[in-house]
Write a protein that binds this DNA or RNA. Structure first.
Lengths: 227, 227
DNA sequence: TACTGTCTTACTGTCGACAGTCAGCTTTAG
DNA sequence: CTAAAGCTGACTGTCGACAGTAAGACAGTA
C-alpha cells in the first residue's frame, strides 16, 4: 500500500495545494477506491503525497463539510458510511434546492439558460444511444449543477455543489450496477426539461420533486438489491 | 484513580480549540465588532488569543464556508461585505430550505415538534411585551433553526445552520436600527405558525415563502434607509 | 478461561519557523 | 509632474516537531 496515491498534483500552482488534495481525495471516495468506514490517517496521506500534514488536514475538513467524511474527535477522519436514511435526506435536500432553482430560473425568464440545459439533454441522448454510462453520469451531474447555477443564486448553487459529492457516490453506483437502462433515466430528464420549458414555476418545482422521488426510488431499490 | 473530572484545562477544552475560536470570531463578526471588509490577519488573532496560527486558520476556513468571511488568494481573509444581491440570495435560499422543512415536518405529523415551536412563539410574545429586542432576536433565530431541525433531515438542518451566521447579521441590524416594532415581526411568526399547524404542507410551504418575502422587504428597506 | 489493570504504539491537536509573494512606498526615468 | 521600476515589510502557505490521548496488546490474577 505504499505510494498508490502519488499523482502529479505538484505542478498545479493555480489551485492551492489544499484544494488539489481535497479534489484528489474526493475522487477516491466517490469512485469507491476508499471504502466506506475506512480510516483516513493524515500522516499517511501526507507521506504518500510527499507533503506535510497541514494541507491534508484542511482538505479533510473540507470533505467533512461536504459530508463525505466524518470526524471522530481525537480519533481521526473516516470515510462516511451512508445509510438508507442518509440517502433519503440527500434527495430531499436536493428537491428543496433544485425545486427552488427551477422556480427562480423560470422567474428570470432566461431563454439562453434554458438553451444551455437543452444542450446537455441532447448530449444525454447521444450518450444513451452509444450506451456511454460514464459520460451519461457526468452529464447527469452537469444538468443538475447547471440548473442550480442558472438559478442566479450563487449561495443556492454553492449549497448544491457542497452536496454533489455525495450525489456522485450514488450516480457511480447506479452506473456500475447497471441496475437500470440509461433510456429510462433519460426519459425522466426529458420530462423534467419539459416542465422547465413550460414557463410555469409551480409545475417546474413539482417536476423536480417528482424527479427526485423517482431517483430516490431507483437508488433505494438498488441498495435493497445489493445490501 | 480515577481521574477526577479535569476542570477546564486550557490546552484541551471540551470543544476543540478550532471550534471555540470559530465561535468567538463568528460572534464578533455578527455583532459588528469586526467591520465588513476588515482584514483578518491570522498571526494577529493568534497573538491576541495566545495560541498558534493553526487553529485560527482552520476557524477562518470554517467561517469562509459559512459565507461570513471571504478569502482572497495569497492575500488573506476579510470580513464579508454584503450587497443587496447577497441579501436576496440568502432569503431565497432560506425560503427553499425552510419551505421544504415545513413540508417535511407536516408530513411527519409530529405533534410534539409543533408544540416545541409553539413554546418559542409564546416566548416571543413575552419578549415583545417587555420590548426585549436581544431576546427576541435569539428567539427568532431559534424558531427558524428548530423548524429545520424538526424537519427530521439533518443535512437540511446543517445547510441552514451554515447560513445562519449571515442571517444573524441581519437580525442584529434590525434590532439595532429599531426600524420596525417587534409586534409586527411577531405577527408574521404567529401567522406562519398557524400555517404550520394547519396540517397542509402546501400552505405551510407557501407560508414560509411569504414570511421570507416579508423579511427580505424589511431588510431591504432598512438597508435602503441607512445606505 | 475470563477479568482487570498496565504498557505500547500510533495518531491527532497544537506549536514555532521559514520561504515565497503580494501591497504599498520609494525612487528614478520620461 | 506623471508613471514605470525597484525596494521593503508583512503576511500567507507550507513545513517538521512535540505532547497528550485513545485503542489495542500484554501480563498478572483468579
Amino acid at each position: 500500500m505504499d505510494a498508490p496515491l502519488s499523482v502529479s498534483l505538484l505542478p498545479l500552482p493555480s489551485a492551492s495545494l489544499t484544494d488539489s488534495i481535497a479534489g484528489l481525495l474526493r475522487e477516491r471516495i466517490v469512485s469507491g477506491r476508499f471504502e466506506p468506514g475506512e480510516r483516513l490517517v493524515e500522516a499517511e496521506i501526507a507521506r504518500q503525497l510527499q507533503i506535510s500534514r497541514g494541507p491534508v488536514r484542511e482538505a479533510l475538513a473540507q470533505l467533512r463539510a461536504e459530508g463525505l467524511v466524518i470526524d471522530r474527535p481525537r480519533r481521526g477522519s473516516f470515510v462516511a458510511e451512508l445509510t438508507m436514511n442518509d440517502v433519503r435526506e440527500i434527495y430531499e435536500l436536493r428537491a428543496a434546492l433544485e425545486g427552488r432553482a427551477a422556480r427562480l430560473l423560470i422567474e428570470r425568464d432566461d431563454r439562453a439558460a434554458l438553451a444551455e440545459l437543452g444542450v446537455i439533454i441532447d448530449a444525454m441522448k447521444a450518450a444513451t444511444e452509444i450506451d456511454d454510462r460514464d459520460g451519461f453520469a457526468d452529464l447527469d451531474t452537469r444538468f443538475h449543477t447547471e440548473l442550480c447555477r442558472l438559478s442566479g443564486n450563487r449561495r443556492l448553487h454553492l449549497a448544491f455543489v457542497q452536496q454533489s459529492g455525495l450525489l456522485n457516490v450514488f450516480l457511480q453506483m447506479e452506473i456500475k450496477t447497471q441496475y437500470r437502462t440509461l433510456a429510462g433515466i433519460l426519459d425522466e430528464h426529458v420530462e423534467l426539461f419539459g416542465d422547465l420549458s413550460s414557463g410555469d414555476g409551480q409545475r417546474a418545482q413539482a417536476g423536480c420533486d417528482r424527479h427526485m422521488a423517482e431517483a430516490l426510488e431507483r437508488v433505494t431499490n438498488m441498495l435493497g438489491h445489493s445490501a
